[in-house]
Each structure stands twice: as structure tokens, then as C-alpha cells.
Design a protein around this nucleic acid. Structure first.
Lengths: 225, 225
DNA sequence: CGCTTTCGTTCGTCTTGCGTACGGCGTTAT
DNA sequence: ATAACGCCGTACGCAAGACGAACGAAAGCG
């Protein structure tokens, strides 16, 4: 299995190359967007790990171009300071994202998951909307509908609901929700519950009856419908 | 296979014409931007090789206009291999770039790669006009009409509205709008909102009622009618 | 049964960010 | 030369969202 790793930080590049090598992957590397595109074209990797901000051509643009020309699974590596959305990554066609800092083990798990999904669905296309029960999140237009009702969510609420939605039925730890919605600074689980409350109100998603947003004490939240 | 070669250096033009002829291509030539656009329109080449700095209309502008009106693959020939040039090229829609000096063999390889990609991608097709609701953007004449009313937009406003129009309903991030409208340098999201304001005024596109230009806080704008 | 913990909800304040207007600068055309 | 136009950049008003604390409710535990 060939992995194309694109990362401009030489230290991190070395570290990951080593770690992924130990996991049994053949690791190809690139340190900027141009190189990345060329290696992608020449070497046809099975999956691409893509740092978000790169010199010359940034990660999102690289992602867009790879998506334009092919369907290779892409995992974006997003830095802390750019809260400039993970959603953006999904919108340009990324298959998954990992927030820095991450462990090599986490990364390997994501790679495996993405490859499995790609395998299972060879004619797949990037996520454009998320449907859970009669709730629909449209990532293109940022519209949210519940049945036929149009709901107005704030960006923060949208991100929270999105993460719960794509992981329907699974419990998402507070830490991960906070990390995702706020992108590293700011955010706190006491704020989280406030916003969860708002989402429940707007979408009638109080837990219990036939699903909704369920709180798992001491752990996190999960969405089921 | 017809190749349109645009190059103001007569020696290089001759050399490449000869070399590409040997590779089996029919070579059309132009020595400045105006000629290039005319020949492109008249002779519908399969691929365009475009020198970056040309007299009258420079290569990037030519590229942008061809991109507006069609999807012919474009390879930029850049003299200085400064990153801005390459980046600028991609931003205005070039498919590939080759740094001078280059060998005819390299060039031929790139042409082949670009053509293959273009072939594989059925979604590429020329766009001659954009209609959103009763707003019509004519890319040939740069005319804009709202219903039967003729609207006068500045080039900058036109580009912004165009990008929103072809992505009707989708939210376009500030970064992408700025990138596209200004090309690369200059531009800034505070300027963007000024021009968005102008467009809204000229076309009565304040958001809310039945569409219009909607702001998605912290993300970008979307146009819907 | 009462205590503690954790989640749910409300509310007022503050900050962020969008909308719009206006003045100035550079360029082009007449 | 000068007028017109496109563009820049700032400032200010305003609305929406985020914050954070405070209080109420529910569930776990001794």
C-alpha cells in the first residue's frame, strides 16, 4: 500500500514517514503542493495525507485538483491556528481530516478506515450532505432542514451537529467535539452544553423519545434518529 | 490534434512549431494575446500553449478569458520560475505549466498528460453565459442583465458575481472569491464586502426575500434565486 | 433519604463580523 | 488638462452569535 505524505515541516515529515513505515506502508513524500501533484500523478498512491497549509499551492487547492483528476482517498492534516474550517476541507473533496497534533496510531487508524470505505464503494464521491432521520445538512449551501422546515443554525452549531451527524449513533467525546467545533482554542465543555441545548431547541432533538441528541454522562454526546 | 502555440519570441516559436510538428501535432501560432484569443475562437484548438508575458494582453489575462469562455486545456510557459507566476497561472485556470528552458520532449509529455486528463473528465464544457433567476451574465460581451434591465458592472464585480453564479446555491469561501476576483495579489475580505455591497445595490440582490447574495458568517457568500 | 455530581436551560452582556457610506487615489479617455 | 470611472480603504452602525454565570432538574451513590 502506497501512501503519499505531503508535509512541509521536515521534522514531522520524518517522524510520520518512520511511523507509517513501521505500520507497513510504503511512504512517498512531498514538501509542497507542486511536488505533491506531480508525485500523485506519477506514482498513483493509494491514499494521500495532505497538510492544509503548504507553500506554493496550498493543501485545499491540491485537494481540489486531485479530486478533479481522480478519486484517490485524501486525508487532510489541519493545523491548530487555522480554524478556517475542516468543512472547507470536506467541501473541496477530502475524505477525512485529522487535527494536529495527532498520534501516529490515530493516523494509521484513519488511513485504514478511509481505505476500507474506498474499497467498499469504488464509485463514491465526496460528502456533500449528511442525512440523519429527517434532518439534512447540506455542506454546499450550509442549509439545514428538518423535514421540510428550513432551520437557521449558527456556524458553531452547524459544526457540532455535523460531527454528530456523520458519526450517527456513535458517542463523540466532549474533547473531540470541542476540538472540532472550536478548532483548539476557546471552547469548553460547559459552553458545549449550551450550544447543544440550542441545537436541540431549534431541531426538536431532545433525547429519549425516538432518538435525538443523547448525553452520555462523563463521556460525550451521540445523535440517533 | 491541433495545438495553438502562443509565443512572442520568433525563434522559439519556430523551434517549437518544428518540434511539435514532428510529434504529429498540427500547430497553429499566435504572437500576442489578441491574436491568440482570435485564433482560439476561430480554430478551436485541442490544447493551448501560452507564454506568460505577451505584448498587448498578457498570458494570464488570455488564460482567464479562455477559461471564461471555454475549457480548452491550457499549458503556461513561464520564463521566470518564481512561485508567484506558477501560482498565478493555476489560479486563473491553467492546467499545467512548464518552466523555460524546457525540451520539446518534456513539452510533448505534458501535452499528452493534459490531454489525457481532459479526455477523462466529461464535466469540462464551455460556459458562454450564466443564468441565475432573472440575472444573466454574458461572458462573451461581459454584459449583465436583470430581467430586461441592462446593468453596468465593473470587471471586478463581474468576476465576483460570475464565481457566485456558476456555483449557484453553494457557499464560496472568502478566500476563494478573493483569489479568483483579484487573481493573486491584492484583495482582502474587507474589500470583498464592499464590492459585494455594490453588486447587491446594482442588482437588487439583498439577501433574505427570495434569494439574493447571502452571507454565511465566517465562511463566505452564496448566490441563490 | 439526602447529598453530590452532571446535565439542561435561561438570560444578560459583550464581542465579532457584516452592511453601507464616504473620501481619496490612480488610470484612462475625451 | 480635466473629468469620469474603477478601485481602495476606513469608519461607523447594527445585528447576530458567542460567552459565561446562575439556577433548576435529573440521575448516581452512600
Amino acid at each position: 500500500m502506497k501512501v503519499l505524505l505531503v508535509e512541509d515541516d521536515a521534522d514531522l515529515l520524518d517522524l510520520l514517514t518512520y511511523a507509517l513505515g513501521r505500520e507497513g506502508y510504503t511512504v512517498l513524500t512531498a514538501m509542497d503542493g507542486q511536488q505533491a501533484l506531480r508525485r500523485w500523478e506519477d506514482d498513483t498512491p493509494d491514499v494521500v495525507l495532505l497538510d492544509a497549509n503548504l507553500p506554493k499551492i496550498d493543501g485545499y487547492e491540491v485537494c481540489r485538483r486531485i479530486r478533479h483528476d481522480g478519486a484517490t482517498p485524501i486525508i487532510m492534516l489541519t493545523a491548530r491556528d487555522e480554524e478556517e474550517d475542516v468543512l472547507h476541507g470536506f467541501r473541496v473533496g477530502a475524505d477525512d481530516y485529522v487535527n494536529k497534533p495527532f498520534s501516529a496510531k490515530q493516523l494509521a487508524a484513519r488511513i485504514k478506515a478511509v481505505l476500507r470505505r474506498a474499497q467498499a464503494d469504488p464509485y463514491r464521491q465526496p460528502v456533500r450532505e449528511v442525512k440523519v432521520g429527517d434532518v439534512r445538512l447540506d455542506l454546499q449551501s450550509y442549509n439545514v432542514t428538518s423535514g421540510d422546515r428550513q432551520i437557521q443554525l449558527t456556524p458553531l452549531e452547524f459544526r457540532i451537529l455535523y460531527l454528530l451527524g456523520v458519526n450517527e449513533g456513535r458517542v463523540i467525546p466532549y474533547s473531540r467535539l470541542v476540538e472540532y467545533a472550536w478548532g483548539y482554542e476557546g471552547g469548553d465543555s460547559s459552553l458545549l452544553k449550551t450550544h447543544i441545548c440550542h441545537i436541540r431547541q431549534k431541531l426538536n432533538l431532545s433525547a429519549g423519545k425516538n432518538g435525538g441528541i443523547r448525553a452520555v454522562p462523563g463521556v460525550g454526546y451521540s445523535l440517533a434518529l
